[in-house]
Write a protein that binds this DNA or RNA. Sequence first.
DNA 1: CGCATAATTGACGGTTTTCAAGCACTGTGG
DNA 2: CCACAGTGCTTGAAAACCGTCAATTATGCG
Lengths: 236, 236
Amino acid sequence: MAKDKMDEVACNACGLDPMCSLLEYGEAGSGVPEGILLRRRPVTRGEKIYLKGDAFYSVFAIKSGSFKSAMTTAGQHEQVVGFHLAGELMGAEGMAQGIYPSTASALEPSQVCELSIDRLPEAGKSLELMQQRIIQLLGQEVAFNHELLTTLVHKRADQRISGFLLNLSNRLKYREMPDTEFSLEMSQSDIGNFLGLANATVSRVLTRLHKSSIIVLKYRGIRILDGDALREIAQG
Amino acid sequence: MAKDKMDEVACNACGLDPMCSLLEYGEAGSGVPEGILLRRRPVTRGEKIYLKGDAFYSVFAIKSGSFKSAMTTAGQHEQVVGFHLAGELMGAEGMAQGIYPSTASALEPSQVCELSIDRLPEAGKSLELMQQRIIQLLGQEVAFNHELLTTLVHKRADQRISGFLLNLSNRLKYREMPDTEFSLEMSQSDIGNFLGLANATVSRVLTRLHKSSIIVLKYRGIRILDGDALREIAQG
DNA sequence: CGCATAATTGACGGTTTTCAAGCACTGTGG
DNA sequence: CCACAGTGCTTGAAAACCGTCAATTATGCG
């Protein structure tokens, strides 16, 4: 996934686009100082673009590639709290507390755009519209997390994993990327960590789905053969 | 809990207070039209103050009492997504999508204040500060949910319940209410639903904690005898 | 090409769910 | 004030589910 430019999301499919447009970035006379919006910085696999506890300064959009967000709990245990795909935003949760609540690291070579929120006032634009956009984003995040909670807390392993695969597929589809054949860049440990399952369980369930001809697994590549069956399993 | 006025939170302990102050509500010449901020409406047990899917219009603060938020999943299954205590806000998640994503119902006779967000422009105040406050709230909600995820997903039943009790206790303490002896107004079914446990399991764990002299249970009243033990269990 | 890391697979045990029955508490109406 | 009904809570036994441990095989990076 995202090994070349073909897998880049277009600007108009990017979660940052409403803000970019608002800044009229790149248009003559927009008056936006340099350095407020940084376009397409490459990030290597494993690189962290912000750390849990860092002072908040920017919101990031994924131009290509994918990331995971993780935090360390009191008991020295790493907990993956989410995955982020091309076109999605990261870091907006940090705006509230002034610090990033989790660490974002790249699952593969990726590219990000960065919007320096703390330098926005220099842009001379009214903050109002920008804030409305942030509110929208955070609201979506809250809704998403509620849904996630619903999905995780009650369901069995096969339901969680089916739901997880469908969720990825839906998000890819939303950004107009291939949604029935894609790559799971995160390790099975990461998936298990996120879903609250042992990685042996993740492997077993994926194998079972494969043997039932619902998906095809080839290393980290996955093809969804029978989305309806997945949906049925996910709902339980 | 909250059977009389003594259990009311003071305005300065209320989550809505920063907004009330912003509106200079009640001060002479504040120019805030009537009906934008409604103070202390009584709500009966079981009453719903907004329904999932309702058009968003207000943010609510709990002056006294407690509520639960629930939504119905695709599979006709009710899912409790949170509990709300005196001093806390409800409904801000609805601002993003324009509709309330869950239904809020009172667990006991309660009192709420209501801020009509959709009539705020009439107040003639700058939206900017208000929006910043909302962003802060939503960010807290996201952070809280991440923490919740961490708490729920990997842990065993006794860890979940210990964490749940500690969470309630901490939130009560934050609002300066009794935090070692309080009432669980929600049913064990609600707790189990929220934590992803069968209610038989909730009962068994609570009984076990009681027998270990870590808590005292008397009907719905609970006293935490050994908070350290709870914390130890919660962490695993 | 080899080593480190990740995934698979089996056996086993612990935890939780389910089902079911009995009990306790609450609130209602007589 | 008491009887009664309804609901929620407790508790037992059996089974399903998942985690842990561990050995083996595969993969990918240098």
